[in-house]
C-alpha cells in the first residue's frame, strides 16, 4: 500500500476563496439540520422513556417541552425536520441521476425552501388552532 498523502480536507477553502451560492448553502444546511435532528432523536428516546415511566417523569418531560425553551426547540426541530426531508428527497433524485443541471438544481433548491416554510407554518397553525 502507498503511504497516505496529507491532503487538505473539506473546509480549507471556506474562509478565503469560496463564494457561497444557494446550492452550497443548502448543502451545508442539510448537514446542519441532520446534526440537529440526530440530537433531537435523543430527546425523542427520552420522551418515550418518560411515557413508559409515567407519573413524575412524564410530567417533568412534558413541562420542559411546553416551556419557552422546549417550544423553541420543538419549533427549530420542525423546521430542521421538514427541510431535511424535502432536501433529502432532492438528494435522492440527484443520486438517481435526475435534476442535476444547474437550472433544475436552483429551481428544486427554491422549491425545498418554499415547502419547508409551508409545512412548518401548516404544522404550527394546526397545533395552535385545532
Amino acid at each position: 500500500m502507498a503511504r497516505p498523502l496529507n491532503r487538505p480536507l473539506s473546509p480549507f477553502m471556506f474562509p478565503v476563496w469560496y463564494r457561497f451560492q444557494i446550492t452550497s448553502s443548502l448543502s451545508i444546511l442539510h448537514r446542519l439540520t441532520g446534526i440537529g435532528l440526530a440530537v433531537g432523536s435523543i430527546l425523542l428516546a427520552w420522551w418515550l422513556i418518560s411515557v413508559a415511566a409515567g407519573g413524575e417523569w412524564f410530567e417533568a418531560t412534558h413541562a420542559f417541552l411546553v416551556s419557552p425553551i422546549g417550544m423553541t426547540l420543538l419549533f427549530l426541530w420542525s423546521v430542521a425536520f421538514f427541510y431535511h426531508l424535502c432536501n433529502g428527497i432532492r438528494h435522492l433524485a440527484w443520486d438517481a441521476g435526475y435534476g442535476f443541471e444547474l437550472r433544475s438544481a436552483y429551481r428544486s433548491g427554491y422549491a425545498v425552501l418554499a415547502m419547508t416554510a409551508l409545512l412548518t407554518v401548516l404544522t404550527w397553525l394546526y397545533v395552535f388552532l385545532a
Binding site: I42, L48, I49, A52
Partner: peptide, 13 residues
Amino acid sequence: FFGLAAIVAILRI
C-alpha cells in the same frame, strides 16, 4: 444505547 432504551420503553408500554 438510546435506540435500545427507546425500544425497551415501547415494549414496556
